[in-house]
Simulated scan of single mutants.
Amino acid sequence: MIRRLQKTAAKILLACIALGAMATASNVPSPAPNGVLYDEDRLLSAQEAEFLRALVTEVYLKTDVKIAAVLMNDSRTNETYAYAKEVANKWRLEGSDTKGILVYVSMKERSKHVIASEGFSTSYPNIDFKKIEQKALMPDFRVEKYGRGIVNFIWEISGEILAASGQTLSVNPDNLLADEPFPWQNYIFIGIVFAGLVVAFFYARPKKTRISSTKQAGFNGTFCNFENFNGGFKSR
């Protein structure tokens, strides 16, 4: 009887492990359409994402090294390194015949991993990811500038890869320092909202007040209460 219970318990345990593995695998994000960036929490601004794509594209064209970043809110597992390896496999960044690097960050678990393929480690044995991480990533992460930290980290890695290959980067990082242009569509939206407020204010006033106001020489009222208006229009 005891042996039967032990066998049953063992089967249940194995089934739980298998189900857990399947759940983790199903939670692995599919490769991004551009094959470069999966940013679940939008940690990168539009400028940073565009710069990153240009950067890793140049590295790939010159060296065949594939670099990707997966930035997640919650990987739903405590085994984040194993999970990052699963992502690297699914994104085809692993293997002895592949020169691939995955930068993985999970916000909820506060974890970050750099997965380098066997092919990359063989081709670039002198690149020290820990050293680059302390120099380029951690200073920004400590002040919660995660997007900038990731971009700086990949920038430093890219520079070392090309230097080891006897080449240089042509992507210009100065564009990241400029403010993002305010989208012209936002001006149209602001105009529509403003016109709507004017119309609503005018027609909300009593009819007698509207008629008498036409006889006044000037506008002596107040337009809404802008002291309580905290909104704004921000572009990413």
Rank of each mutant, 00 (worst) to 15 (best):
M1P: 12
R3Q: 10
L5K: 02
K7E: 12
A9H: 07
A10F: 13
I12Q: 11
I12Y: 06
L14N: 12
A15D: 13
I17Q: 05
L19A: 13
A21Y: 11
A23E: 03
T24I: 08
N27R: 11
P31D: 07
A32I: 02
P33L: 11
N34K: 07
Y38Q: 06
Y38N: 06
D39I: 09
R42A: 09
R42I: 03
L43R: 12
L44M: 15
S45N: 04
A46M: 04
Q47R: 13
E48V: 01
E48N: 01
E48T: 01
L52R: 08
A54C: 05
V59G: 08
L61D: 15
K62V: 06
D64V: 01
V65Y: 03
I67L: 13
D74W: 02
D74G: 03
D74T: 03
N78K: 13
N78W: 05
T80R: 01
A82T: 09
A82M: 10
Y83F: 15
E86F: 04
V87L: 08
A88L: 05
A88I: 04
W91H: 07
L93D: 04
E94Y: 07
T98L: 03
K99C: 07
V103R: 09
Y104A: 04
Y104L: 02
E109G: 01
K112P: 00
H113I: 00
A116G: 10
S117E: 02
E118Q: 14
F120H: 02
F120M: 01
S123G: 00
P125G: 08
N126K: 14
I127H: 06
F129K: 02
K130N: 15
K131I: 00
A136R: 05
A136T: 10
L137A: 13
M138D: 14
M138G: 00
F141W: 13
R142W: 07
K145L: 15
Y146L: 12
Y146C: 01
G149S: 10
V151R: 04
S158Y: 09
G159D: 12
E160I: 02
I161C: 06
L169Y: 07
N172Q: 10
N172E: 10
D174P: 03
D174M: 13
N175V: 14
L177R: 10
F182V: 11
W184N: 09
Q185S: 15
Q185E: 15
Y187S: 11
Y187R: 12
I188D: 00
F189Y: 13
F189N: 05
I192D: 00
I192M: 09
V193E: 08
V193L: 14
F194M: 10
A195L: 15
G196A: 09
L197G: 07
V198S: 07
V198F: 14
V199G: 00
F202Y: 15
Y203Q: 04
K208E: 14
T209A: 14
I211K: 09
Q216D: 10
A217H: 08
G218W: 13
F219I: 08
F223Q: 02
C224A: 14
N225H: 13
F226A: 07
N230W: 01
F233T: 04
S235D: 08
R236I: 05
R236F: 10
